[in-house]
Amino acid sequence: MTTFKKINREKSYLINIIALLFIFILPLTSANAEAGEDEKFSPGDMIMHHIQDAPEWHLWDGPYGTIPLPVILYSPNQGLSVFMSGRFEHGHASYQGYRVEEGHIVSESGDKFYDFSITKNVAQLLINVLVMLLLFISVAKAYKNRAGKAPKGMQSLIEPIILFIRDEIAKPNIGEKHNKYMPYLLTLFFFIWLGNLIGLTPGAANLTGNIAVTGSLAFFTLILTLFSSKSYYWKHIFWPPGVPTPIKFIIIPVEVIGILTKPFSLMIRLFVAITAGHVVLLSLLGLTFVFHSYLVGIGSTMIVLFINIIELLVATIQAYVFTLFTSMYIGMALEEEHH
């Protein structure tokens, strides 16, 4: 019986290792294909291409390698234009007065327009949200069906994380009223964490490493902080207690700027951590094609494997840190006089 279990476990280890190898080899092959098309391989372009947004989802060169995505443009002169990004023919054609330049849609006439396209990142966002909805609603159902019983399956994976966020992040930093903020903190944590993890898989978009995404999340935190703030929070900013009056004139501007620097740091931290991770991984993979050497390829794959494991850690830490700081800011805003 035990030997059978052992064999089974070894088998699952083997499957894991093979799966991991695939994960690290896949980006290699796609990068290889890119290098093949353009005689001269430019690692900088390859990296930027991977970490930036695009109107289409490029997986590999050749037929069916690029998934066209809907383009939604609005210009005051031309009105609304909706079409698939395949019309641009990978930047070779213009359509309805628009064309793609360096992964960006530009207007040929130079008119001002607003881009609401379902870009690669928006598509990734929709996929992530779908995954989250399926995952958490099914987990919630499990709680309903198995009321009063011990957690099972996905439930037992999610529950410790929820309890950790409640007991280690929300409760110590927010205090009594933490229950009110739990839904936001949980949504935030899982959005960032799953976004980071999905972003690490080959072919996926760098969603949580995009400054628009991290900026929006930081903005929600700012709004939530301002809306939950008590009078003491503002008193502390505009007339800090226990500080000599002349120094107050130095402190007050710092405190006022501090309202904005807090969410700003949230935005930058997540953006930098995730983007930098992707840049490091892609640079190491790029070495193979710069040196045109199998030996370097094997070496850099080993290092990429190691960095990827660190990236898994970073994905979790960044989600934790964003949630932690959000609850700290909420806690500060909720603080009362007697503290």
């Binding site: 949200v129 400054i211 929600f220």
Partner: peptide, 16 residues
């Protein structure tokens, strides 16, 4: 990289 795009901000806010 440092320029947030309007479309993504819009979709991110709405969807989130």
């Amino acid at each position: 990289l440092l320029t947030p795009s309007l479309g993504l901000i819009f979709w991110q806010t709405l969807v989130f």
